[in-house]
Amino acid sequence: MSELVVFLVLTAFISVVHVSVTRTADRKDGLHREARRYFLSAAGGMLLLGLIIEAIAQLFQY
């Protein structure tokens, strides 16, 4: 659980920094909204991928 928290915090930091240095001409939403959207995409995608890999690993165990 603690490693999950570290992962989420790290992804949040990366999201905010990435959105901050993205070219401003392309930004339509505010920083908060765009960073939140990026965070949900990145963290959600990686968690989903992790769950799929875990499920496949469990299948091969039996």
Partner: peptide, 12 residues
């Protein structure tokens, strides 16, 4: 932007 980056990256 600078203060935000300073806070986040240096905290990490």
């Amino acid at each position: 932007t600078g203060w935000l980056l300073l806070l986040l990256v240096n905290t990490l």
